[in-house]
């Protein structure tokens, strides 16, 4: 029920941002349609702790800036590789361990790996992710497990 209410709130906020008009008619139509959309979605059983992880928003305030900083750093590395005439790549396939407990945590980890340029998650199993990295150094960085620990803390597990 709590998730239903917060999903309606998020949908309604999205409506208000896109609309930009604050006349009573449009605001009522928006409220009715957000409730209708979330009611339809909850028939598909996607409005729950896993499908609507709004509780992560607090911890996202420190995780997302850190992730953006990682993206900028590795993006500059990949740009340097692309622009250097000799193209110094050493493609590496590596298995990394995902120590997250929840599905949301593993998905966050796999998407964070893919989002940072230079590493792409190719296959995901329960607790193992196969990663294609453009350089061996990038693969070794990932195998060091820094991002894994950050994501585990992000999903609320114990800081390992």
């Amino acid at each position: 029920m709590l998730y239903f209410a917060s999903a309606v709130a998020v949908t309604y906020a999205f409506w208000l941002v896109l609309s930009g008009h604050f006349t009573p008619t449009l605001m009522i139509i928006g409220a009715v349609s957000s409730v209708a959309v979330v009611a339809l979605a909850s028939r598909m059983a996607v409005i729950d702790r896993e499908g609507h992880p709004i509780y992560l928003l607090v911890r996202a305030t420190w995780y997302w800036p850190w992730l953006i900083w990682q993206i900028i750093k590795s993006g500059l590395d990949v740009s340097r590789i692309i622009l250097s005439p000799s193209l110094p790549i050493s493609p590496t396939l590596i298995n990394v361990k995902a120590s997250q407990k929840t599905v949301v945590g593993v998905v966050t980890y796999a998407n964070s790996i893919t989002l940072t340029p230079g590493t792409v998650s190719v296959e995901v199993e329960d607790d193992e992710i196969t990663v294609h990295a453009i350089t061996r150094d990038g693969a070794m960085d990932l195998a060091g497990g820094d991002m894994d620990r950050k994501v585990t803390r992000f999903e609320g597990g114990a800081p390992a």
Binding site: S90, T92, L93, L115, V122, V124, H132, R136, A139
Partner: peptide
Amino acid sequence: PVATHALAQAALHAGIRPKLAHDETGGHIA
């Protein structure tokens, strides 16, 4: 990332092997 991961996984399942300089998986793919 969702599109990129779907693309990489589909390419792997279609039988395309990446050209590798180092293979650290030991032949095991998750």
